[in-house]
Lab assay of single mutants.
Amino acid sequence: MDETGKELVLALYDYQEKSPREVTMKKGDILTLLNSTNKDWWKVEVKITVNGKTYERQGAVPAAYVKKL
């Protein structure tokens, strides 16, 4: 869990989004888990830093590609 009490997951593999509802992640990324009720796809929040600014993006990733921490 992070400092706000939200559950975290670890990306076990790289994943490139294939639709606007998904998010890209790299192996080793730590993501915030938002919903894991679907056994195949979990909704997560990814933090992306671009030019020193951090953005948050929500989307789905394959459940088999992440592990709860």
Rank of each mutant, 00 (worst) to 15 (best):
D40I: 14
A63M: 04
D2C: 15
G52F: 05
E7N: 10
D14I: 05
M1F: 13
L12W: 04
T32D: 03
T37R: 08
E3D: 13
K68C: 10
R57Q: 07
W42Q: 00
K53E: 12
E7S: 11
L34N: 01
M25Y: 01
P20G: 09
L10D: 01
T32F: 08
T4A: 13
I48L: 09
Q16H: 13
E56W: 15
K47W: 08
S36G: 10
V61G: 01
Q16V: 14
D40G: 07
I30Y: 05
M25G: 00
L8F: 14
K27L: 04
L33C: 04
E17F: 08
T32S: 07
D40V: 12
M1T: 13
A63L: 01
I48E: 09
E3Y: 14
V9N: 01
D2I: 14
Y65W: 06
G28T: 02
G59K: 00
T32K: 11
G5I: 11
L12M: 08
K6D: 09
P20Y: 08
R57S: 05
V50R: 10
K53N: 11
N38G: 10
Q58S: 10
E56Y: 15
S36A: 11
V61N: 02
V23L: 10
A60V: 15
Q16E: 13
W41V: 02
P62I: 06
V66K: 01
P62W: 06
R57C: 09
G52K: 04
K43Q: 15
L69Q: 03
Y55L: 11
V61A: 02
V9S: 01
E3G: 13
W41T: 03
G5N: 12
R21A: 14
L10C: 12
D14Y: 04
K26Q: 09
Y55K: 08
V46D: 00
L33F: 03
T54C: 14
K67T: 13
A60T: 14
V23S: 02
N38P: 04
M1D: 13
K53Y: 11
T32M: 09
E3V: 14
P20Q: 09
T54K: 07
V46M: 09
K47C: 14
L69G: 02
K18S: 09
E56K: 15
P20A: 11
T32I: 14
G5S: 12
L10W: 05
I48H: 08
L34Y: 02
K68G: 06
P20T: 09
T49F: 11
S36M: 10
R57E: 03
S36R: 08
A64H: 12
K53M: 13
T37Q: 11
L69K: 04
G52R: 02
A11Y: 04
M25D: 01
I30S: 01
L10N: 02
N51D: 13
Y13H: 11
L33I: 03
D29L: 04
A60M: 15
E45Q: 12
A11Q: 00
Y13W: 09
K47F: 08
K18E: 07
